[in-house]
Design a protein around this nucleic acid. Structure first.
Lengths: 145, 145
DNA sequence: TCTTGAACCTCTAGGTACTGTAGCTTGTAT
DNA sequence: ATACAAGCTACAGTACCTAGAGGTTCAAGA
């Protein structure tokens, strides 16, 4: 039996966040001790790890909900899974593309900055310059669903 | 003289978002027409472009405020800006790494999923696996200040 | 067994960065 | 002169947490 604190430490998730996940229904309601404290099983730890890792990769909680639904129903037809996976793949590819452009710029920023004052520093210019951006004003922020 | 709509179109920023930026003080209060509509100069467009681009690169508005302050005082040390950029770069690289692992699995899932159930898919495992993560449970979300 | 203190509980509010809606006014083109 | 797109304010709502108040439970040491 695991406490919420153990889950917190093992996944690097704040205790409040775990309770929040329960509240919005991405984490299952756990059992309680005699005194009313949450008691978890390993499977809950797994689920939380899954959620956190997905969040770190930029999935929205809505997308995570979808993926969890997939894993909660392993007998669901492969076609369903395929549709979801394809959609996620497209988004993931788009995100990688955006992040790589970003990385290039950041690298340029840190390598070009050799002056002592901002006057000689390219960082501000780079951030003002949109030439490295894609033509479209696409938001590279996460929105997968 | 530019209208808010022009700024919106030229930078791909929602009109409300521009007004929000003004409200929180990252955009300067512009002049107004006789009827009270906002009227901007080129310098405002530049500033907004800077803000949007920085946001797209994952900087928090707080960091952007910092950078704007930096560019408003060009005699300040470049090291400050460099630190911010370096921090971003590390996070971005980590994120790309995680996403590439995920992409690989999603691709595999899409192309190889010939079974009838999700039980044979590895995607859930991939998302549960933190091996690609650094040891620390650092939040990769943007928080530079 | 008693006590202490860390860890837990609920509830509420706040934070960031927007986004949307209602209801109205302004500007411009015909 | 009129239509209507685009502007205005004000406020509510969203996603995803995070912090604090004020109280309770649990486990370990005296």
């Amino acid at each position: 039996m695991l406490t919420i604190g153990t889950l917190s430490k093992k996944t690097g998730t704040k205790v409040q966040t775990i309770r929040y996940y329960e509240q919005i229904g991405v984490m299952n309601e756990p059992g309680r001790s005699a005194g009313g404290q949450r008691r978890y099983f390993e499977k809950d730890l797994d689920r939380l790890a899954f959620i956190r890792h997905s969040r770190q990769l930029g999935f929205s909680l809505e997308s995570i909900r979808e993926l969890l639904d997939l894993s909660d129903n392993p007998s669901r037809s492969c076609a369903d899974a395929d549709v979801i996976a394809r959609r996620q793949l497209t988004q993931v590819e788009r995100r990688i593309k955006g992040l790589q452009a970003l990385k290039k710029e950041l690298k340029r920023m840190v390598t070009e900055c050799e002056g002592n004052s901002v006057a000689e520093c390219k960082i501000i210019e780079v951030l003002r310059d949109h030439s490295e951006c894609l033509t479209e004003h696409q938001n590279i922020d996460v929105e997968l669903a």
